[in-house]
Amino acid sequence: MISGRLKATAAMPVPGSTAGTAAVPHQAPGPDRHSTGGGRRRWEDGPTPTPPARAELEQQEQLRRGIDRHPVCEADDGRCPTLAVVGETQCAEHLGWPLCPGHDGHPCTARTRTGNQCATCQDEARYAHLDAALPMTTTDDGTCPGHVGPCGRAAMPGDPYCARCRIASQRDRDRVIQEWEAVRDAAVATAKAQEAPQEAPVRS
């Protein structure tokens, strides 16, 4: 009896069909991918757009601003191979800038606009002053040597000091640097005032 019902059910037509088979909805054909007329072109029709490289974008921005990344010194009829100073058309030597006085008796080949120390020599002088003003010792057992006295706490990873002594050391370091820069700036100001031409007194 069950077998007979299954055979009868299988023989019944599917809804929406006329011959016992399911009807497939009709779909309109899509536009030809190679067609160029009529509607919108598909992305396959042309090359895949490639974003410009970062270096190219930087170069375009600099050209827009009128900046030359590698200006060459214009002295000696353009035969000077040295790059020009930023914002100038000639190198520091042809501009007549004096040599950096160097640091700790060592001469320096860099030139500065004012004749003061270059940035490299200033950094070396700063670190030398810090080493002299705030000498630091290290230990072999991984303990903090202390900043102003013996400590003995565990040092931080990659740091000879513990957290407490590191904070104290940084505070003293900032103070020493501020005092050193104040003395340096005062000496530079005094030297400039001495080099400035003395104005003739005005006679009444």
Results as ranks from 00 to 15, higher is better:
D104W: 01
R41Y: 05
V85Q: 05
T143Y: 05
L134E: 04
E61A: 15
I2K: 04
H106A: 13
C100P: 04
R65I: 05
Q27M: 12
G105C: 03
G4P: 01
T137N: 09
I167C: 02
D131L: 09
V14L: 15
P49S: 13
T120R: 08
D68V: 12
A84P: 00
T48N: 06
G38T: 06
A182E: 15
A75T: 01
D32V: 02
R33Q: 10
D140S: 12
C80E: 09
T120L: 09
I67A: 01
A84N: 01
P107F: 07
A187N: 14
G37F: 04
E44V: 13
G46F: 03
G142R: 13
Q178P: 01
A155S: 13
R126V: 07
P71K: 00
V14P: 03
N116P: 00
S35Q: 09
A128N: 06
Q117W: 03
P160S: 07
C144S: 02
D32F: 04
A11E: 14
P52R: 08
T112Q: 06
G66H: 06
A191K: 15
T112N: 06
A189L: 13
V85T: 07
A200Y: 02
Q198L: 12
A11V: 06
S3K: 11
L99G: 13
R65S: 11
L99C: 07
A28S: 10
E195M: 06
S169M: 07
P201L: 12
R126Q: 12
Q122S: 14
C91A: 00
M1S: 15
D159A: 03
P101Q: 08
T89Q: 09
C165V: 01
A84L: 01
A22C: 01
P107A: 05
A28M: 14
T109N: 08
T120W: 04
C144G: 02
G39D: 07
C118V: 05
S204Y: 10
G146S: 02
P47L: 06
P157D: 15
I2W: 09
P51Q: 10
Q194F: 00
T114G: 01
R54L: 15
R64F: 14
S3G: 13
S204M: 09
P157C: 08
I2H: 11
E124V: 03
R153E: 15
R33F: 08
D140H: 08
G142C: 14
A193T: 08
P160E: 06
P25S: 02
P135L: 02
A187W: 03
T143S: 14
R173H: 14
P98F: 02
H34F: 10
D45E: 12
A53Y: 08
R166P: 03
T9R: 12
Q90Y: 02
A19H: 04
K192R: 14
P98C: 06
G66L: 07
P98V: 01
G37N: 05
C108E: 02
H26D: 14
Q198N: 09
Q122I: 00
G102P: 02
L83E: 09
T109C: 00
Y161K: 03
L6K: 12
E93K: 05
H26V: 12
H106S: 07
C73I: 00
D32Q: 10
G96A: 11
D172S: 11
T9M: 14
P71Y: 00
A187L: 08
D32H: 13
G115K: 00
R175S: 14
M136K: 10
P49T: 11
Q62L: 14
E44Y: 06
G149C: 05
V86F: 11
M156G: 03
